[in-house]
Measured scan of single mutants.
Amino acid sequence: SIKEIEKEEIIKVLKEVNFNKKLASEILGIPLRTLYKRLKEYGI
């Protein structure tokens, strides 16, 4: 599903940037606030 793909992509990017959420949100092209929402939604 799209949610699974998105979750995997978020985890992959977070690992690449050593869990720097600000940098991860910039790489993913989403606002930091949205990233936090996704992390909560996906239980990351």
Rank of each mutant, 00 (worst) to 15 (best):
V13F: 03
E41Q: 10
V13M: 04
N18L: 08
E26L: 14
K22N: 06
G43D: 09
R33A: 14
S25V: 04
P31E: 09
G29C: 04
I44T: 04
E8M: 14
K7M: 15
L14E: 00
R33P: 07
E16T: 12
I5Y: 13
G43W: 04
R38F: 15
S25D: 00
E9Y: 15
Y42F: 13
E26Q: 14
E26C: 06
K22D: 04
A24P: 00
N18T: 04
I2Y: 06
S1C: 12
V13L: 08
L39I: 14
K40S: 09
E4N: 11
R38W: 15
E4D: 14
T34C: 07
I11D: 03
E8H: 12
V17Y: 06
K7C: 07
K3Y: 10
Y42P: 02
K12A: 12
K15V: 11
S1F: 04
L35Q: 00
L35G: 00
I10E: 01
R38V: 13
E6I: 08
I5C: 08
N20Y: 05
N18R: 10
I30T: 02
I10K: 00
I27F: 06
I27C: 04
F19K: 03
E26Y: 12
E9M: 15
I30E: 01
K40H: 13
K12Q: 10
F19A: 03
P31K: 08
I30W: 07
Y42I: 09
E9W: 15
E8I: 12
L14V: 03
K40I: 13
L23N: 04
G43T: 05
E41P: 02
K40Q: 12
F19M: 07
G29I: 02
G29M: 07
R38G: 02
L35D: 00
E4W: 06
E4R: 07
K37I: 11
E4K: 08
N20A: 04
I27Q: 07
Y36Q: 12
T34F: 07
I5N: 13
L39W: 03
R38E: 03
A24D: 00
L39S: 02
Y36L: 15
S25K: 02
L32A: 03
S1V: 12
K7H: 06
K12P: 01
I10M: 11
I2D: 14
V17C: 07
S25L: 02
I11K: 06
V17R: 02
E6W: 07
T34S: 08
K15D: 04
K3M: 12
L14S: 01
L28Q: 00
I11V: 10
K40N: 07
N18M: 10
K3Q: 12
G43L: 07
S25C: 07
R33W: 12
K15I: 13
S1K: 05
I10P: 00
I44V: 07
I30D: 00
K7V: 10
S1L: 10
N20W: 05
I44K: 05
P31N: 10
T34L: 14
L35H: 00
E41F: 08
Y36C: 10
N18Q: 09
I2W: 11
L39A: 02
S25R: 02
V17Q: 05
E41Y: 08
